[in-house]
Amino acid sequence: MHWLSTKKAKIGLLAPTLAVYTLFIIVPVIVAVYYSFTEYSGLGKATFTGLENYFRMFQDRLFLIALKNTFLVLCASVVFLMVGSFLIALIMNVDFKGNGLFKMVLFAPYVIAPIIIGIIWGYILNPNYGLLNSFLRAVGLDALAIEWIGGTTWTPLALAIVFTWQVLGFHSTIFLSGLRTIPRDLYEAASIDGASGIQKVFRITLPMLKETIMINVVLVITGVFKIYELVVQLTGGGPAHQSELLTSYMYFTVFQSRRYGYGMAIAVAVLVCSVLGSFVYIQITARKRREGK
């Protein structure tokens, strides 16, 4: 197998992937960046306008609303998903009857098309006839029967809940695979030393899962910046674009409002936020690791 380690072989093996990646990722990103400096309606020639689209973003109230909503969904999702998927992974890591079925049911939403998930949750969260509010009213909790979707206050939280439901199984599986890599003798030794279950989680499990946690957080960050179908199906971005996230607002700007140049500037902003968010988080984690925290 020595021939596989030669420089030529490496280049030969990498070339097809690199070509596809360049063609479908790098080139479109470069094209998007180019158009972000232009005024373009999708037809005819684009007019170069420099940084105008980027300056416009900070004066665009709807962009700022979408940015705020995305940030809220991100924060809520990180909390819900990190805590939720870790706890579920702990349960999945225990041998019990029906564990397989439990895993399957939990993972199922991840393989359902997001648009279907939007429809399902639309029936659950609709403030007037939705299952959730009907239930809350039936048990006398009328005060909790709030405007989950369609209003301007609770929609980001509702989106975070639905997103969490959708990807919980996936993130739990990643945690589970992390848990399976932790040597059992560490727990046995801790038990001999009289450590409680909680102590084992905080002293052994979590420190040993640092890499897994980092992967999960990065996946949540990038995942939130890709939420589109849920917004479209649950709220249509409304009322009056008050529940848009960055991606759905970018889509509206480009394809309905036909402001391609400005839409591409928003797309670049989404990319920067996503990459920057992940990068900063990885840097912080890496620094802590170096410092031995």
Partner: peptide, 21 residues
């Protein structure tokens, strides 16, 4: 109207109808 302004007018009208604007 241009597409952008026309849909903006629709959004503004529905914004008032839904109490956003």
């Amino acid at each position: 109207l241009s597409t952008s302004v026309a849909y903006g007018y629709f959004d503004a009208s529905f914004g008032v109808m839904t109490g956003v604007y």
